[in-house]
Design a binder for these strands. Structure first.
Lengths: 263, 263
DNA sequence: TTGCTCCTCACGTCACGTGAGGTGGC
DNA sequence: TTGCTCCTCACGTCACGTGAGGTGGC
């Protein structure tokens, strides 16, 4: 460590023997070393430590650095706490099931995206109710895009909202189904297609599902259990990203996405 | 990231175009990528991820890895929490005093050390009571070591214990002063000198003091305030390590050491 | 004379990120 | 023809740790 600080000029020995190149330090340098170590222990890098020691930073800048560090530490702390919960959950799974899950849930950020979409409603979130509605919806969406000459920039996404519309009491517990396809950011409203922005989602629990959408429900339920077991809760409408949709429905690859927030 | 995983053979593209070298992945590889990301997010390194994916680790080993990871995360969390408290304390100091302290307190581990020592008692921990006792004590210790031909392996350390000895009620609130000098680990008991092991101290708050021991009290008090303000409490007898003791007492350099534990 | 401690390079760590310079398909 | 995206090296990151090979003072 002292060799390194000598090499980068952070703490030079008080004396270096010319023939043996031995480094000699004075007791007074111990205080200086302590300042370095104390600042380093706060999590500052050596270059930052150097600026602070050389008094190249004003009190205001110093306060800024400390405030930033505080925010970084708070973020790291939250991440590590979440990691710890996940590790513990895996240990529990090993104890109870004798194996580790291979259907991996990944927490990720979802980018904001401008989409062209069509909507319809269904009675519930079960595949029996969704399927007959979403299939023609997607077909119509694809046709409209073709007619209007709009080029999709990504994969089809479906998302589902609980209608909170009191104007039509009969429909108040129906689900609104959105079939959405990402388009170029500059795309403007056009006749017969809604252009909306899917909001950015800070954290979403995601899982890849492979198979027919008729049998997706257990995977959605597994995702819900994961969210609960790992200290999160649902936070917003769920999405299905159709990654690959070949002829054979059993070969479909879908990413299920559920926005979450720490419970 | 995908280029990196390809380079290290963790996740190879399903197909590579022979002429353009473009990498092509299949949707089914998304599940594999998710497994990698999920394990990586737990804090495992890529080599560990590879072993787990290749099923080169038994369930028992896997449990061991997770248990270790849990311990590491718990340790990291505790360290970062302590760091955060220290950053916040510094921000408070800047607000109230308009500057950052330059007498830096460093938390460090103290190694176990075999020492040769002599003891005496004093009425209190004030320099007026300690000084007249410790000075002759150190002189006698030096003389004994010389007579016995024992070579010190480090610097003189003093440490102080509140006597909890009920056998001599009059002395029960007197301080026991130890003057100790480190010696080779194999040194055995000799006549007229106690050979004892100073215990290892997991965490001690330390500060370097420069000046006569007559004026050390404010620095001890500053250390005590630091300990309190940074979420620790005292945990064991304090020590003074005499780093440099030239003729002029004002030039002495001493490291004050106080064992601590999270409050 | 033999350990012992110190020295100087030089390279490794870890998971990518970042240019520089180049190229195939629309 | 012009962007655009992808490609391949090669080097940087950060604070040291770790040998390899060598040397001065007891």
């Amino acid at each position: 460590m002292l060799r390194h600080y000598d090499a980068i000029g952070l703490l030079r020995p008080a004396k270096v023997d010319p023939t043996s190149s031995y480094r000699f330090y004075e007791a007074s340098q111990l205080a200086q070393l302590n300042r370095i170590v104390a600042l380093k222990d706060l999590g500052f890098g050596l270059e930052q430590v150097r600026s602070i020691l050389d008094e190249n930073v004003s009190l205001e800048q110093l306060r800024g650095m400390l405030t930033l560090r505080r925010a970084q530490l708070a973020a790291t702390l939250a991440e590590d706490a979440a990691r710890l919960v996940q590790v513990e959950e895996r240990l529990r799974t090993i104890e109870s099931e004798g194996r580790m899950p291979t259907d991996e849930v990944v927490v990720k950020r979802l980018e904001r995206a401008r989409v062209a979409e069509l909507t319809d409603t269904a009675a519930s979130l079960t595949p029996e109710d969704i399927g007959p509605v979403i299939e023609p919806l997607c077909a119509r969406l694809g046709q409209r895009l073709g007619e209007l000459g709009i080029e999709p920039t990504g994969r089809l996404t479906a998302y589902y909202e609980q209608s909170a519309d009191d104007q039509s009491p009969d429909d108040s517990d129906r689900i609104t189904i959105h079939a959405a396809v990402p388009v170029a950011a500059g795309t403007q409203e056009v006749h017969g297609l809604s252009i909306v922005d899917l909001p950015e989602v800070e954290r979403a629990a995601t899982i890849v599902y492979r198979g027919s959408m008729d049998d997706v429900l257990p995977t959605w339920q597994a995702l819900a259990r994961w969210i609960d077991a790992n200290g999160y809760r649902s936070a917003g409408p769920v999405r299905e990203l159709y990654v690959e949709c070949p002829e054979d429905p059993a070969q479909w690859v879908t990413e299920l996405q559920e926005p979450i927030t720490p419970a």
